[in-house]
């Protein structure tokens, strides 16, 4: 088995460049305002603008067919038991199915393993992808919510509660956040499977490795700031609030370069997000196999880009050839003939 490493190494190189840029820019050139205010605001604007652009682009695309993916009995006769989640019949059931898909990744739970054993192809259950993806996504969500404590004053109570739960076991000092640990486990799994599973490795490109490595480096710089190289958090909160209230101030108190690296990596992620595979965050809602009810037999789905086709009905055809048909003794359908006369 040979492992394709080029895309992986290229991604590492990209990450290294992204780390060196703020190291030079802030550490050597001292461009604090540029890296602390201009780039984060630009990144936020590109992030939100890019997501809206992608949403509008998808919303403008017509939906020619109803292609719901189903794996359960659709709504039929009242005495036939149906599956509401697997074959949703109305919008409410679609919303329910979407909810479980977004928060619990039901479709990944069905992921199968396919391996060759000698010459035999074997299928089996594989829940690891589902587990790794869930750890990563939920960990990321909790970490983002926890970051509200830097941007909001007074700190919302739910953030304090979340933080207490996250550090529930009080392992080490400062307390280890469980979400930090779990997101690293999830990310490590997602990365290693691309490197060591030959089938996944074969279809992995830089656009797969880069976001994983980028998020890993964001998490690692964040954990480093919490555990080892601690910045002046008071100054950072002042700075973060000044950003959130649109009166940006770079504090005079020194903030470590590590913080600017973290910030620049997050900004890079925000800019990269809408134009990469990461945009599945909004794309999932525009997935035609997921967002349509399976009601083909109850409602006719009209292709929005159908254009009027010129066609000839039988009665028109009959009128045209009436003489010839009568001559040849072919029976004339008078009902249709009458309809034509009525319309005329």
């Amino acid at each position: 088995m040979s492992v394709r490493l080029n895309d992986f190494l290229f991604s590492i190189l990209l990450i290294a460049v992204l780390i060196v840029i703020p190291l030079l820019g802030v550490g050597v050139l001292g461009l604090k305002y540029f890296f602390g205010v201009i780039i984060p605001y630009l990144a936020l604007a590109v992030f939100i603008g890019g997501l809206i652009y992608r949403i509008v682009d998808w919303a403008r695309s017509p939906q020619p067919f109803k292609i719901t993916t189903t794996s359960g009995q659709q709504k039929s006769l009242p005495w036939i038991k149906r599956s509401r989640l697997e074959s949703p019949a109305n919008n409410l059931e679609v919303a329910l199915r979407m909810f479980f898909e977004v928060f619990f990744f039901r479709s990944l739970f069905r992921n199968l393993r396919a391996d060759l054993e000698g010459k035999r192809l074997l299928y089996g259950s594989a829940k690891w992808l589902w587990l790794g993806a869930l750890l990563f996504h939920l960990g990321f969500l909790i970490i983002i919510l926890r970051h509200l404590r830097f941007f909001v004053f007074p700190v919302p109570e739910f953030v304090n509660i979340l933080e207490k739960i996250d550090g529930f076991f009080q392992i080490g000092f400062p307390t280890l956040y469980l979400s930090d640990l779990l997101i690293l486990l999830g990310l490590a799994f997602l990365l290693l499977r691309r490197l060591f599973d030959a089938k996944i490795n074969y279809i992995s490109y830089a656009s797969d490795y880069f976001p994983l490595l980028l998020i890993i480096s964001i998490v690692v710089t964040g954990i480093l700031m919490r555990v080892a190289i601690k910045p002046d958090i008071f100054a950072i909160k002042h700075y973060a609030i000044s950003l959130a209230t649109f009166r940006p101030v770079i504090p005079e108190a020194p903030i470590s370069v590590l913080f600017y690296v973290h910030l620049f990596l997050v900004s890079s992620l925000a800019v990269y997000f809408p134009f990469s595979k990461l945009v599945h965050m909004v794309g999932i809602f525009f997935s035609p196999t997921r967002n349509l009810p399976n009601d083909n037999r109850m409602k006719r789905h009209v292709n929005p880009w159908d254009y009027p086709v010129k066609y000839t009905t039988y009665s028109e055809w009959q009128e045209k050839f009436r003489d010839v048909m009568e001559e040849a003794g072919i029976p004339i359908d008078e009902e249709w003939g009458k309809e034509i006369q009525k319309q005329a």
């Binding site: 509200l148 941007f151 909001v152 609030i241 959130a244 209230t245 504090p251």
Partner: peptide, 19 residues
């Protein structure tokens, strides 16, 4: 979220200049 959560208690915010 951070922007409108802060707008809700603009009075409680620290002064513009952190010093």
């Amino acid at each position: 979220t951070p922007i409108w959560l802060n707008l809700a208690n603009l009075k409680a915010l620290p002064p513009k200049d952190p010093h």
